[in-house]
Each structure stands twice: as structure tokens, then as C-alpha cells.
Design a protein around this nucleic acid. Structure first.
Length: 491
RNA sequence: CGGGGCGUAGCGUAGCCCGGUUAUCGCGCCUGCUUUGGGAGCAGGAGGUCGCAAGUUCGAAUCUUGCCGCCCCGACCA
């Protein structure tokens, strides 16, 4: 009996939730707005972490860890940053509970244990980190500081969606300090490029690099670079951001250094981050109506092996053949799960590994052993083929590479098919309704952007870095514009 | 914080309007036999403070009142 998923086209949200749940990635926690990432989902996140971490180290960064709590006085130091996040902060006000005499067995907050100063649970760590950097920096010799932190942060969201928006989420946040403006800008741009490379090479997800408009800019940043991806329902997803912070935080926390020429100046800063939201992006970029589809480079295991047999004797024979193949694959660095459980039937396993997005499935039974063949099914195309037993390791290796490329190419094709240019407001509204990226002229003002948002629900996703200089008129106000920006409805 | 909806087994639900034996069905779970190349079949079984509290009544999942919790749509947002 087939227990299918809801179709993507029928109800995208439902489809998404079913994949997250049935592929065993995550679930809602009993804690409001919070998420439990289950082992299989976390294994994917760990692969992401590993690759990102490697790329950060290759670009000269080191990991460190800063406190979860930010004293309110530090949090409010950089005004724009504080104002931007104030509405969604969890705040610790007490440090002790006591027995509730009126309700035996229950606890209540001990009012005597009220904190002198409230502690904000970090929604982002600029404040606590810049307060720390203050003590680390005196001279140009102390610069640059290139630090990354893997951490959890809390943003008290009113409405949540697994991986895309939860009250607590996991991420990495890089925080760097530089002697010059140019160096800081180069750092922010470099990290955007690192994110781009990760998204495209590992996630198989094409992204557009760009700058945020003022209203979408990070609170406290001078400039926000971003990568934007297009999901299969035609909505945009901000996949990563890298901020040039100017001297805003250095001034707020009074972080100065003495330059080679003896002059005292504030340092220049960047911060950049990607979160478990990338998991949501990964799911929505490749998955289909049969479940998750994972790019080989991020799959917890690239190959699932399913033995087919009747009786214990056959089972042992088939499993021993598969074990040999497994060794050959592992020798090539391919990760394999041999599912020899007798508690589930082959058909059940086929469906299960499809739901979980395993790139390749190898099935083997007595027939194959006799013929010297192996059945290989690829997840991206759902194509099944028999390959010669002798050559299987090379074939699998080749297929995995092919799948990785194919997923990326398919995602690019999808994005191109769903990217359009609008030349007037009527056309714009129609295109936005249909979904996808819409390239259009904009007069550069926040007022117009807001008006368009109110009228169409579309926002400026970014001003693309490769924007062509092109004289035109704003689709909304008719004022002159130098180039097109990307509009879309967004997550 | 505004508008709407829902709370019945691990999950999804019927029953409620019009009160009446042992609370319905499906999935899942357990046992046994037969099965195993696309989510097996049959037989048996376990599992429930019907969100909580009070009230009306001979009798409440069902009616009344209060409370609690959750979901959806807005506003906010990576």
C-alpha cells in the first residue's frame, strides 16, 4: 500500500512538513516555537558544518565560543542593532526557583533572586563579542581578528516553520576586526563568495549574490551582502548574509587600535552567518513528491543497500555479497549503509530510502548473484539500471558525481525558467503573482519599496552584484533607475 | 496583539446539533502463521483522566459557565 506524500503543487507547505517529518529530519518540540533536530537531520547538518568549517579555516578563520547571555547594557550599546532585535529577545530576569507553598510539588520564581541587570539571550552575538574584542585589540599588530562561532541563538518568532524559522536555531557567526575599511569590505565579500561556493558545490543550489536594500539590511550594518535562492514554489529564500559593519560596533564598544603611524582609530568590522535554515533550503531545492532528494556531498550515506532474499540461508549469501561491494565502495571514499534488517521488507526499505533522499540504492538478490549483476536506482531521476558486478565501484563513483551535477543543473534550469523581467507595474504584478524572481527597475527609495511590498507582497531580494548598468524607469514611481533589482515573494 | 478554528489512544479521526449499554474507524504498536524483486496477508491482542474545573441531570464526550492549551490567517522575522 502506497503512502504517498501530498503533492508539491497541491499544497507546498504541507508537502514540506511531510518531508521534514517522514524523512526523519526534525519535529516540533513541546517547547513553543522550538524544534528537535532528529539524528538523520542532524547528520546532514553535520556534513554542512564540516564543509563550511573547512572553508572558514582555509580562509584563515579560527573557531571560538562566547556566552549565551548578553547583559542588557551591552546589548543596547549599538543602538540600531539593539532596536532591530529588541522585539524578539528572550530575557532572563531571575536566577532561582523555590517551592510554591500554595501548590505543593510546584515551583515558582523566587522574587528575591531578581537579577540586578537582565540578561538577554543572544539573538546574535555582535554585542558580547565586541565587548570582548575591546580587550584583545590595542595595536595594528593585533589585527585582523578572524573568528567564527558555532552556536545557538534565540529569536522569539511569532510564527515558526521547521528549519526555516524557529525560536531557537543553530548557526555559525563569523566576527572579524580589521585595520582598514578596504580590508573589512574585502572580508565581507569574500565570505559571501565562500557561502556561494558552498551553496553551489555542496548543496547543488544556485544562488544570486547581491546587496540588500536599506530596509532589508542587518540592524547595525553599513552594507549587507547576501545570497538568494529560489525555491520550487517560486518564493525566494535568503540563504546567507555577510555584513560590512563599518566602525559602528567599534564605536559603540570603543574599540580602538594604534596604527603603524601612531594614529589612534576605531577598527573596522564584519559579521557573517548561515543557519540551519540551509536545511530548509536544501529540502525545498531538490525534493520531489516521493520525498527528500539529497546531493551526494551532503548525504549522511550516499548508497543504501537492500538485500532481497527468501530464508536465512539466502539472506546470509546476499548480505555477504553486498558486504564485499560495500568494502569496494568504501575504499573509494563512498559512504554506504547496508540495511540487512530482517524486520522490514525490501519494498518498505525502497520507499524509506527514497523518502530519506539517499542518492543511490543498490538492490541485490539471488537473480543478480547468478547473473553477476547489481541493480542500481538513482534518486534524482528514479531510474533503475543493472550494472556488471565487477565494475560496480567505478560506476557508483561516476553516478554519484553525475547526480551532484544533475541536481545543480536542474536547479539552475528551474531558476532560469522562473526568472523574468518586468517593464511596467501591471506586468510586474502579474509576474509576482506567478512566482519566481522578477528583475525590475526601482528608484532606490525605501518608500517605493514599501509601497510595492504593501501592494504585491514582493520585496527586493537583492541588488545583484552583476547588475547591468541600464537606464530605465522605476516600475512603481516612474523615477529614473540605473539598473534592475530582484523582486520576489520571500520566506 | 487583532480575526478564525480545534482539543477524543503514539498519530489522524467519527460520535456532539437532538444526553442513554462496553466511545467509532484508519495508521502505528505487540504475538503467531504464511510472506520477502516496490510501503505484505490473515488471525488474535495491548493501548483512553473524551484538555481541566465547576454546574444542570437518574445519567454528560455530548448541554451551560469559567479556565488552560494548541493550530491557522494577519503584524514581526535568518
Amino acid at each position: 500500500m502506497a503512502k504517498g506524500l501530498t503533492s508539491r503543487k497541491e499544497d507546498y507547505s504541507k508537502w514540506y512538513n511531510e518531508i521534514v517529518e517522514r524523512a526523519d529530519l526534525a519535529e516540533h518540540s513541546a517547547v513553543r516555537g522550538c524544534m528537535v533536530i532528529k539524528p538523520y537531520g542532524y547528520a546532514i547538518w553535520e556534513k554542512m558544518q564540516k564543509e563550511l568549517d573547512r572553508m572558514f579555516k582555509e580562509t584563515g578563520h579560527s573557531n571560538a565560543y562566547f556566552p549565551l547571555f548578553v547583559p542588557k547594557s551591552l546589548f543596547e550599546a549599538e543602538e540600531k542593532n539593539a532596536e532591530g532585535f529588541a522585539k524578539e529577545c528572550a530575557v532572563v530576569t531571575h536566577y532561582r526557583l523555590k517551592n510554591d507553598e500554595e501548590n505543593p510539588g510546584k515551583l515558582k520564581v523566587d522574587e528575591k533572586a531578581k537579577l540586578e541587570e537582565e540578561l538577554v539571550v543572544r539573538p546574535t552575538s555582535e554585542a558580547i563579542i565586541w565587548n570582548t574584542y575591546k580587550g584583545w585589540i590595542q595595536s595594528y599588530r593585533d589585527l585582523p581578528i578572524l573568528v567564527n562561532q558555532w552556536a545557538n541563538v534565540v529569536r522569539w518568532e511569532m510564527r515558526t516553520r521547521l528549519f526555516l524559522r524557529t525560536a531557537e536555531f543553530l548557526w555559525q557567526e563569523g566576527h572579524t576586526a580589521h585595520a582598514t575599511k578596504e580590508e573589512a569590505i574585502e572580508e565581507a565579500e569574500q565570505m559571501m563568495r565562500v557561502y556561494t561556493e558552498f551553496a553551489e558545490k555542496f548543496m547543488g543550489m544556485p544562488v544570486i549574490q547581491g546587496l540588500k536594500s536599506e530596509s532589508e539590511r542587518f540592524a547595525g550594518a553599513v552594507e549587507t551582502y547576501c545570497i538568494e535562492a529560489l525555491m520550487q514554489d517560486g518564493k525566494a529564500l535568503q540563504a546567507g548574509t555577510s555584513h560590512f559593519l563599518g566602525q559602528n560596533f567599534a564605536k559603540a564598544f570603543d574599540v580602538k587600535y594604534t596604527a603603524q603611524d601612531g594614529k589612534l582609530d576605531h577598527v573596522w568590522a564584519t559579521s557573517w552567518g548561515v543557519s540551519t535554515r540551509l536545511m530548509g533550503a536544501l529540502i525545498m531545492t531538490h525534493s520531489d513528491d516521493k520525498g527528500l532528494v539529497l546531493p551526494p556531498r551532503l548525504a549522511p550515506f550516499e548508497v543504501a543497500m537492500v538485500p532481497i532474499y527468501k530464508g536465512e540461508e539466502q539472506r546470509q549469501e546476499v548480505v555477504s555479497h553486498l558486504s564485499e561491494i560495500k568494502k569496494e565502495l568504501e575504499a573509494k571514499g563512498i559512504s554506504v549503509k547496508l540495511d540487512d534488517r530482517d524486520t522490514h521488507k525490501p519494498g518498505w526499505k525502497f520507499a524509506e530510502y527514497e523518502l530519506k533522499g539517499v542518492p543511490l540504492r543498490i538492490a541485490m538478490g539471488m537473480r543478480d548473484i547468478e547473473k553477476g549483476s547489481v541493480e542500481v536506482a538513482r534518486r534524482d531521476t528514479l531510474e533503475k539500471k543493472f550494472y556488471d558486478r565487477q565494475d560496480i565501484a567505478n560506476k557508483v563513483d561516476h553516478l554519484l558525481e553525475n547526480i551532484q551535477d544533475n541536481l545543480y543543473r536542474k536547479a539552475i534550469d528551474f531558476r532560469e525558467e522562473n526568472s523574468h523581467t518586468a517593464n511596467d507595474y501591471t506586468e510586474f504584478k502579474q509576474l509576482i503573482k506567478e512566482g519566481g524572481f522578477v528583475y525590475a527597475h526601482w528608484d532606490g527609495t525605501a518608500e517605493t519599496e514599501e509601497k510595492i511590498k504593501q501592494e504585491t507582497k514582493a520585496t527586493i531580494r537583492c541588488i545583484p552584484l552583476d547588475q547591468k548598468q541600464e537606464a530605465g524607469k522605476c516600475i512603481c514611481s516612474g523615477e529614473p533607475s540605473q539598473g534592475r533589482v530582484i523582486f520576489a515573494k520571500a520566506y
